[in-house]
Design a protein around this nucleic acid. Structure first.
Lengths: 334, 334
DNA sequence: TTGTATGCGTTATCAC
DNA sequence: GTGATAACGCATACAA
């Protein structure tokens, strides 16, 4: 049989309440008593029943992660980051896949809360921007933290990377190498990061006194095919860009493919840059310079924010990093 | 306030036990009563407390997935497959990262079981082969299913792909194209799949009457670098292979890199084949023929096995598929 | 600093 | 088929 608190209390010669105190790290337990209880717990290999704790207590020692992202790597990073923090806290993590665009998402979250009594919720992008879900959370009064929200940053505690600065940094890097015609592929229209990255690109151009030329800016959709299409279009121009900066790595891979297909030397004749949103970047062998997102750290920070019980629109900003893999100066004039 | 069973029973004019019966889809509830109860549940948006159900009942309506695999894509497929089946069953999934090699894994699993009272456990490879963990599970009498176990197949219900047949099929495919010198890169020594795939390669050679030549077989470690090294070694041979079959896709990517670096035309001068273990394969643009693993389906099947309550060494085998992406006949003699 | 009594919301047992 | 009542194992409020 499983050991219960009663067994422990009997063995330690104390009341169940005292055992409970030790379990929950409450104050007002003398050291000798605490020691005896801990020994008994150890000896009996006692594990408190999560069910009973939830039912009796106010806390469930569980938090939920709601995610919907089609990049397994991103999700994995997120889960891992939160997980590590949960371990420290002795909290269990419920990972809940979902459809961020679903009209029933709010109801699903409500159901989850009712059923599991989670102590808090972490929303990863793009679930972060489902208004109905946020309203449901607010209504329940369940604490939640958002990872990289696209909108309404003041609504709740959140963590995020500075997409504008990242795109600015990357563009500035390319400019510093001597590039003057830098193509840019915009991300999917539904993602706020797309706008931010575009803005960063533009800001860097402006600061350098370079013109923003619409023909060097193409709309993409964060996927490989749209990266190919955009690259083809730009490389077909009479005066093509000497560098192309894609808003994510799937599209950057498309650019690389096109370059390869056209026999363009990389990075000698074309520098390609992107983000490592899907971590595809690390697996590509042609030179690809990327902005590395601190995804795992963001997730970790989000969990910390939750456990710290912060209130209000606290926004924790984490730094990104440029991973330079062979982007070079533009070829001298042909 | 959350609605409870009492609220529902009052509204439906029945006892709490009857509501409970409806909730658990038990028999012995007349249709009219069932209907009234369901209406009340709907009207009150009643969600049963998972904690109370666990505490009172024998079932927890939860199962756990224990995993430790360094491929996010694999994990994602596994989680998704199980998840889909859990939804149908109204069961919650606890995803538990772990270290398959850890000596404390068994204890962790024991703790998990004690705390959460999970109804069953699914182990994904390579956690499937941690003997201490299996013993712990057996001792507890907790039902479990293993996904692609490497050893001891008769120990529990399991699901798997036929690695031998898959490697045989791929090798046979290359032979049928006319290749007579087919290089093979063995997978990591700790993975049973490595042995099986090597065996399938060899079996296909034997059946075709082709010699097994050690110089065309190299040890790898399932990673990119070892694929590169193996490819370099084989392509440095006086008479290099015309095709290279790597035991996974990370290594295959290494082969592609080397080919690219050496200016070898793909697939004209060298056919490259692999598995899509990490799903890297689908993102590579040079021609790469792969064995597609039915990972998601395996996970789904594993969950089904668990819910069906099968006993004994039931092994459900799922078919693989060859994804031919441009492997060709070998170049004519130079 | 420690102990006692009560209840959390559901299912199991057994009666009707 | 349906209902009354006793658990389930812990935390809470309050008492000592």
């Amino acid at each position: 049989m499983r050991a219960t608190i009663k067994d422990v209390s009997a063995r330690a010669g104390v009341s169940t309440k005292t055992v409970s105190r030790v379990l929950n790290r409450e104050k007002y337990v003398s050291d000798p008593v605490r020691l005896r209880v801990e020994e008994a717990i150890e000896a009996l290999n006692f594990q408190p029943s999560a069910a009973a704790r939830m039912l009796a207590g106010k806390r469930s020692h569980q938090i939920a992660l709601i995610y919907d992202n089609h990049s397994p790597h991103y999700i994995h990073q997120i889960q891992t980051g939160i997980w590590e923090r949960c371990i420290e806290e002795g909290v269990r993590l419920l990972a809940q896949p979902s459809d961020a665009a679903s009209s029933t998402l709010a109801a699903e979250i409500g159901g989850l809360i009712d059923q599991t009594q989670v102590d808090g919720v972490i929303l990863s992008s793009p679930v972060t921007d489902n208004v109905a879900a946020l309203e449901e959370l607010d209504r329940r009064g369940v604490p939640y933290v958002r990872i990289s929200p696209g909108t309404d940053h003041g609504r709740s505690p959140s963590v995020s990377m500075d997409d504008v600065q990242a795109a600015d940094d990357m563009t500035s890097h390319l400019i510093s190498l001597g590039h003057k015609r830098i193509g840019f592929i915009i991300g999917h229209v539904n993602h706020t990061a797309s706008d931010l990255r575009l803005y960063g690109y533009r800001r860097a151009l402006d600061r350098a006194g370079l013109p923003y030329e619409p023909r060097y800016v193409r709309q993409g959709f964060f996927d490989f095919a749209s990266g190919e299409a955009a690259a083809d279009a730009m490389l077909d121009l009479p005066i093509p860009p000497t560098a192309i900066f894609a808003s994510n790595d799937d599209m950057a891979a498309g650019v690389l493919t096109v370059a390869h297909r056209r026999g363009i030397a990389l990075p000698g004749e074309l520098s390609v840059a992107g983000f490592d949103d899907t971590a595809l970047a690390s697996q590509l062998w042609p030179p690809l310079t990327t902005v590395r997102q601190p995804t795992r750290q963001l997730a970790h920070a989000a969990a910390s924010l939750l456990f710290e019980g912060v209130e209000g629109p606290v926004n924790r900003r984490l730094a990104h990093e440029l991973v330079l893999r062979g982007s070079t100066a533009p070829p001298s004039k042909p």
